[in-house]
């Protein structure tokens, strides 16, 4: 799935002048419980690039995402998103966010279109209907992600891969400059993952945006990233996927197993939702997990 070298080199050269999508400068984060989730992280994500952040559970990936989304503030250091403080960037809808699928209430009586419209609808005054211009954009995106024929289907009746594509469309409705993906492959089968990687490729090519993928699953990242960073409390590695050796992975993941055990005993389990589990879980199973 990775694009030819010349292609990505050209993109990088063209976008270098346009500044950075995400700047993380010497950031540390400590939870109230005293657990240090991130330590002295520095990260630059150029516009138009595709960065994958790989890390084991409890390695601080979700914390980093929350910092970039502006949901929490760093204990030390600075985060800038599209040249703005993260909170402002998120509020201005220039950041599209693909949350972990397992968090959603799949029993909700909503169809695909209603889910896709959800975030854009937040900007419309309560007494107004969704403007035709937004409606049109939703239709275009449903086409782009190949979900137009399923637009009226209840979201809970779709496969994991289809739900993921609906979520991608939702993240793109407000035309973001930066797309954040949180564990995009969890609960999606092989075929779905391949399709998803192709979709990301298309989105990157057609919409000219920066993509940042956070995952514990190497496949999620290797499929569609130009650069890769390995995160386990500190940033261990930052290079192209081709340069990632088994030695580096082994070292980081081993290091983290110890770190995670420590979290389990001493911490509040703030990273618990990272343990969504992988493997092929049918969508209905997720829904029933949430049933009362």
């Amino acid at each position: 799935m990775s694009s030819p070298d010349s292609d990505s080199a050209a993109t990088t050269a063209a976008t270098a002048t346009r500044g950075r999508a995400v700047t993380v400068r010497d950031v540390s984060f400590r939870y109230d419980s005293g657990v240090t989730a991130l330590e002295s992280i520095s990260l630059n994500v150029p516009h138009g690039s595709r960065l994958g952040i790989l890390g084991p559970n409890g390695g601080g990936k979700s914390t980093l995402l929350k910092l970039i989304l502006g949901l929490i503030r760093p204990t030390r250091g600075r985060v800038e998103v599209l040249g703005l403080p993260p909170r402002l960037a998120t509020r201005s809808r220039r950041v599209g966010y693909l949350p972990q699928r397992l968090h959603a209430a799949w029993n909700a009586p909503l169809n695909v279109r209603q889910v896709v419209a959800m975030t854009a609808a937040l900007d419309v005054a309560p007494w107004r209907a969704l403007p035709p211009e937004v409606q049109g954009r939703i239709d275009d995106l449903l086409d782009l992600v190949g979900m137009a024929h399923l637009a009226r289907r209840p979201i809970g009746e779709l496969s994991g891969g289809q739900q993921q594509r609906a979520f991608i469309a939702r993240a793109l409705v407000s035309r973001p400059r930066l797309l954040l993906l949180d564990e995009p492959t969890v609960g999606i089968d092989q075929a779905g993952q391949a399709q998803f990687a192709r979709l990301l490729e298309t989105i990157h090519r057609e919409l000219d945006l920066t993509i940042l993928i956070v995952s514990h699953d190497l496949r999620a990242i290797a499929a569609g990233c130009d650069d890769i960073a390995v995160l386990s409390r500190t940033l261990h590695y930052h290079a192209s996927p081709e340069g990632l050796t088994p030695e580096v992975l082994a070292e980081v993941f081993h290091h983290d197993i110890a770190a995670f055990a420590h979290l389990r005993h001493g911490g509040q389990g703030h990273e618990n939702h990272d343990e969504g589990g992988d493997g092929d879980r049918p969508a209905t199973g997720n829904g029933e997990d949430r049933a009362p």
């Binding site: 209430a105 209603q114 959800m118």
Partner: peptide
């Protein structure tokens, strides 16, 4: 409920995502 139907819908469907969207 009618006035806040949109943020309520986002909140009910996925609280984390809603928060990230500024709800």
């Amino acid at each position: 409920v009618w006035w806040f139907r949109r943020p309520l819908m986002a909140f009910v469907f996925d609280e984390v995502a809603a928060q990230a969207s500024g709800v």
